[in-house]
Amino acid sequence: MKKRVAVLSLLLSLAGCDALPRDPGGTLDRVRQSHTIRVGLADDAMPQQARALLAALAQQEGARIELRRGSLEPLIVDLDADRLDLVIAEVAKRTPWKKLVAPGPTLLVHGEGSERTEWRALMKNGENRWIMQVEQTSRAVAPEAS
């Protein structure tokens, strides 16, 4: 009985102090310490919603955006290797990359049906606190799309 109370107390305290989730790779901690968000952009231009997302994240964390342009695949490799914190890309609805990265809520939609593409922020899998923060901010800046 004492053990159950202890486990319940632990869970409630974790819930109360908003301690969960944390990042296994410490992405959010790194952003806060370095005051830099390293972003990969898989296109020449970026839609307004994506710019708003980056501006809001930078403001929340008191950080500056370090932007790097490139092709989607090398950017995802960099994301997985912790050389980037975020990738902004226009991806197909059924993109196979969805299993390798954690896609945030939709920022902007182009086309319909099988030709539909979506602008999204892509994060490294498992960095759940950082993922949650980007998801919250994406929903705030593009509520209609998400």
Partner: peptide, 13 residues
């Protein structure tokens, strides 16, 4: 590394 994200529920994330 399993991803467990968030969802919008009754106006809260």
């Amino acid at each position: 590394h399993a991803t467990v994200g968030s969802m919008r529920l009754f106006g809260h994330d």
